[in-house]
């Protein structure tokens, strides 16, 4: 991946497919460390699946024989001297945490979060997402439940709504973090 936001998109698709009705996506910056947490309430995994999930040649899919999403994320985190962990319980959900030292030469940039969140919402318009980006005292938050409440039945994947979500987050980033 060229941006961590692409990893976030990729891993969150797992939560969507796991049927998670509400998924928290958190980006937290502390000094040079950046931590991603994707916490879902999906179907969860068995201990055997959790143990194998970062093996690229383990997958439950049938369209191909490899599953690279979590192995990529783990590798990218560890290349920067960061860490990776995953916790999961069948019927409860899965929580993926990865931390990166952004000052390390092998780190990749976070990338375009507004477009990423827009894409995630478009993938699962009937599911809710709480996106939070925290840096010191500053915070950007988007909760699709608030947006849904305003829309009175208009689907979240309506193109005009998706573009509004992107533009809204871009304006939040400009306001909170400057350029």
């Amino acid at each position: 991946m060229k941006q961590l936001s692409e990893n976030i998109l990729d891993i969150t698709m797992n939560s969507v497919r796991a049927g998670s009705p509400l998924t928290d996506i958190t980006v937290k910056e502390e000094g040079s460390m950046l931590t991603l947490v994707i916490n879902d309430r999906g179907c969860g995994m068995t201990p055997e699946q959790v143990a194998n999930v970062t093996d690229p040649f383990f997958t439950t899919r049938t369209t191909r024989k490899v599953g690279l999403g979590l192995p990529f994320l783990k590798m990218e985190a560890e290349l920067t001297g960061g860490s990776f962990s995953i916790e999961s319980t069948v019927g409860v959900g899965t929580c993926v945490t990865a931390s990166f030292d952004m000052s390390h030469i092998d780190s990749i940039p976070l990338g375009d979060m507004p477009e990423t969140v827009m894409t995630i919402v478009g993938a699962a318009p009937d599911k809710d997402i709480v996106f939070t980006h925290v840096s010191g005292e500053k915070e950007v938050v988007l909760d699709t439940r608030d947006i849904r409440a305003q829309l009175d039945g208009v689907p979240l994947d309506t193109p005009e709504v998706l573009l509004w979500i992107r533009d809204y987050l871009e304006s939040c980033y400009a306001e909170v973090f400057g350029n």
Binding site: I147, Q150, L151, T158, D167, S171
Partner: peptide, 13 residues
């Protein structure tokens, strides 16, 4: 931007 802007999109859609 404000969440209230969504009501205009809602009415249009």
């Amino acid at each position: 931007k404000s969440l209230a802007e969504l009501s205009a999109i809602r009415d249009k859609m």
